[in-house]
């Protein structure tokens, strides 16, 4: 069930469109925030929106492979953009935390990071994202060869850390976090069964060509 493919010459433009579209919710929230449209506690609302969009784009980045495997729809050209957009959201989320939320009071920030498991998990997520973002370019892929693939497997613990960070930041589990827990479980669970799945497929293909 292959979708009609985009003509190759339109690919770069569509990637740029994805960047523009992807960053839109954050920019719009910033605009609303400046003009008093984020409700009574705009800083927290903005911080939460940025974190939520980061998590969404992380999930989107990890859905590319299952879609290709299972639906034969190849969106791999957009994966780097999805990952980098997630990274930008996390950077913005972290910046808001440091400045608007904690007011750059470093002692209180350090105490927060060291004492609170959910903040620590967020930091783990951010620290993993940095090398991934820095190597998300063609030059690095060529340079690192197969090591690039190994490095980018860190996306899995990253997603897990991000999910736990989110869930532990909540007072109680409601429908919305339950949905994210389910999505992340499926995305990561798929990676566990994928080797077997691929092997079976390959075996079938081999017998078919014989």
């Amino acid at each position: 069930m292959a979708l009609p493919a985009l003509p190759a010459r339109l690919k770069p433009a569509s990637v740029w469109a994805l960047y523009a579209l992807g960053l839109m919710p954050g920019l719009y929230a910033f605009y609303l925030g400046i003009y008093g449209g984020l409700g009574a506690d705009p800083v927290r609302e903005f911080e939460h929106l940025l974190g939520t969009w980061a998590l969404r784009f992380l999930c989107a980045g990890l859905v590319i492979t299952p879609i290709r495997d299972l639906l034969s729809v190849n969106l791999i050209a957009y994966r780097r953009a999805l990952g980098l957009i997630a990274f930008y959201y996390v950077l913005a989320h972290f910046t808001v935390y440091l400045t608007l939320d904690r007011g750059l009071i470093l002692t209180s920030i350090l105490g927060d990071i060291l004492k609170r498991p959910y903040i620590m998990l967020g930091m783990v997520g951010l620290l993993i994202l940095i090398p991934l973002a820095l190597t998300s370019n063609r030059w690095s892929i060529r340079r690192l060869g197969s090591r690039w693939n190994s490095l980018h497997k860190l996306a899995y613990p990253l997603l897990l850390a991000a999910l736990l960070h989110y869930v532990l930041s909540l007072k109680s589990i409601t429908l919305e976090p339950a949905i994210y827990i389910a999505v992340v479980t499926v995305l990561l669970g798929y990676r566990l069964v994928r080797p077997k799945l691929m092997e079976r497929r390959r075996a079938r293909r081999v017998t078919a060509t014989r």
């Binding site: 910033f30 925030g33 400046i34 003009y35 008093g36 449209g37 705009p42 800083v43 903005f46 608007l100």
Partner: peptide
């Protein structure tokens, strides 16, 4: 409710 928007708080 102190200040308007993101920067007044």
């Amino acid at each position: 409710g102190e200040g308007d928007g993101l920067f007044g708080g």
